[in-house]
């Protein structure tokens, strides 16, 4: 796709329906604009602009946020702030709520959307991605040929090859039977992109042992991913942050951690077990409360 320097002024198209949006995207010349928090920095960051943008943030289909059967449906244009507010009090979605409520800063959370967070390829530190991975979320994408539903894992793997003519419309999350927690590590107390994110989802059996676990890691590698070996290692054991930390320490070598200006790869790896432990400390507290 052609990129233009900051001095070129792209067009903005404002479709009234999702179908119209998909048709505008169909010839590949335009890109999606939702919250704008990534696109609008393009000029400053030397990333330039597309020929035109298709504004999707006001499409009613994409701003829905609510329950459908046992599933939570999150429209792509829902903002982090809206999601955080909606999830207040939903104790089984603490991990996702934390991700939505702690990312970036308040002004950005009021603009940045769920769809933007999931579809920005160059953003390893996206907070919602590990949270949704840990929840086995599914994403729905639409193009002129129709709608498809993908597991988030598959969507992430296909983002770079997926046609730009595709529009992510919503995310579907099934409420887990257990508890979830998310931890992010910033260099300051807050306000910078996390150098590591861990999102944990566990189900505890009647015997107090971990029956099932899903663990996702963000910002350590260029794309967030699941950590199945750690999850397996924890199943059948009590909910124990010290044990989880030891297991994470033993298995962290599976990651190929990225170097960045804010932290080198070794550091991201080094703190990973502690982040795992922190999610488990939160889960221990949640479990104790019940």
């Amino acid at each position: 796709m052609t990129r233009h320097a900051s001095t070129v002024t792209p067009d903005l198209h404002v479709p009234q329906t999702v179908q119209e949006a998909v048709e505008l995207l169909a010839d590949g010349a335009f890109e999606v604009l939702a919250g704008g928090t990534w696109v609008m920095r393009g000029g400053i960051r030397g990333e330039g602009y597309a020929d035109g943008y298709v504004l999707i943030s006001k499409l009613p289909d994409l701003t829905r946020l609510g329950w459908s059967d046992q599933s939570l449906v999150i429209g792509a244009a829902v903002t982090h702030a809206q999601l955080a507010t909606f999830l207040t009090g939903h104790t089984r979605l603490t991990g996702l709520a934390t991700a939505a409520a702690k990312s970036a800063n308040p002004a950005i959370r009021r603009a940045a959307t769920v769809g933007g967070n999931l579809s920005t390829v160059d953003f390893p530190a996206a907070d919602l991605v590990p949270a949704l991975l840990a929840l086995d979320a599914q994403v729905s994408i639409l193009d002129v040929d129709g709608e498809r539903v993908l597991d988030l894992v598959d969507y992430l793997a296909s983002r770079t090859t997926l046609s730009p003519r595709t529009l992510l419309t919503h995310v579907t999350v099934t409420v887990p039977p257990g508890f979830t927690a998310q931890e992010r590590l910033t260099m300051r107390s807050a306000g910078d992109y996390p150098v590591g994110i861990v999102s944990t989802n566990v189900r505890i059996g009647a015997d107090g042992l971990v029956e099932d676990a899903t663990i996702a890691v963000g910002s350590v590698e260029p794309v967030a991913r699941l950590w199945p070996s750690l999850a397996s290692a924890l199943i059948g054991h009590p909910l124990d942050s010290a044990f989880a930390m030891r297991m994470a320490h033993d298995l962290k070598g599976e990651f190929n951690a990225r170097d960045g200006i804010e932290a080198a790869g070794w550091y991201r790896l080094q703190v990973l077990p502690e982040l795992v432990a922190r999610t488990f400390r939160t889960l221990e507290r949640e479990a104790d409360l019940r």
């Binding site: 903005l12 404002v14 604009l33 919250g35 704008g36 928090t37 696109v39 609008m40 920095r41 400053i44 960051r45 943008y53 504004l55 943030s57 702030a81 970036a104 800063n105 308040p106 002004a107 950005i108 009021r110 603009a111 306000g191």
Partner: peptide, 29 residues
């Protein structure tokens, strides 16, 4: 800063305090 990190451009748009450096004019018609 123009990137949403400094907050000096924060204004209210339809009741929400947002970074106006990252808001495209066409989106607030």
């Amino acid at each position: 800063c123009g990137e949403g990190f400094c907050g000096s451009c924060t204004v209210f748009v339809d009741g929400d305090a947002k970074a106006s450096c990252l808001i495209a004019l066409g989106t607030v018609a």
